[in-house]
Simulated assay, not measured.
Amino acid sequence: MGNSKKTYYISVGDGLITELSTVSPWNFKIEATDEEIIQLRHYFDQVYSSDWKGFYRAQLPFIEYHYDSENDEVDNANKRIYEMLYDLGDEQTREHIRTQRLMTKIDEQE
Rank of each mutant, 00 (worst) to 15 (best):
I63E: 06
E64N: 09
Q46R: 11
M1S: 12
Q46E: 11
E73I: 10
R101G: 02
T99G: 01
I97L: 01
R41H: 09
H66C: 10
F28C: 03
Y82L: 10
L16A: 07
D14Q: 12
F62P: 01
G54S: 10
S69G: 13
Q39F: 08
Q39D: 10
Q39P: 01
D34A: 08
E70A: 10
M1N: 03
E108Y: 06
H96F: 11
S24H: 13
D34Y: 04
Y56S: 04
I81C: 04
Y48S: 10
T18R: 04
K53L: 14
V12F: 14
G2H: 05
K6S: 12
E91M: 07
T18N: 08
M103N: 01
R57F: 02
L102F: 12
E31T: 10
E91W: 05
S49I: 10
M1A: 13
Y43W: 11
Q109K: 07
I81M: 05
I106H: 04
N78G: 05
R98E: 13
E19A: 15
Q59C: 13
A58K: 12
K53R: 12
T18H: 03
E19T: 15
W26D: 00
T33H: 03
D45P: 00
K6A: 15
D14P: 03
S49C: 09
D51N: 11
Y86C: 05
P61D: 05
N71L: 13
Y9A: 07
R98F: 01
H66F: 13
Y67N: 08
K5M: 15
N71W: 08
D34F: 00
Q59S: 09
K6N: 13
L20N: 10
Q100C: 09
H42A: 14
F44C: 08
Y82V: 07
I81F: 01
E19C: 14
R57Y: 04
K79R: 11
E108P: 01
Y8Q: 07
G54A: 04
V47W: 00
I10L: 01
D51A: 12
D34I: 05
Y82Q: 11
E108A: 11
R57M: 06
R57H: 05
I38M: 06
S69E: 10
D90I: 07
Q46L: 15
K5Y: 00
N3W: 02
L60K: 12
R57E: 02
R57D: 04
L88T: 03
R101W: 07
D45R: 06
E31I: 07
E19M: 14
H96I: 12
N78F: 03
S49G: 04
T22I: 12
K53S: 12
E83R: 08
A32Y: 00
L40G: 00
E91K: 06
N71M: 09
E19N: 10
Y67L: 13
T104G: 06
K105G: 03
S69P: 10
E36T: 02
E95L: 08
Y67F: 14
L16V: 14
K79G: 09
Y67K: 15
L40H: 00
P61Q: 06
D87W: 04
I30P: 00
R57P: 02
G2S: 15
D34V: 09
L88I: 04
E35A: 14
L40M: 05
L102D: 06
D72P: 02
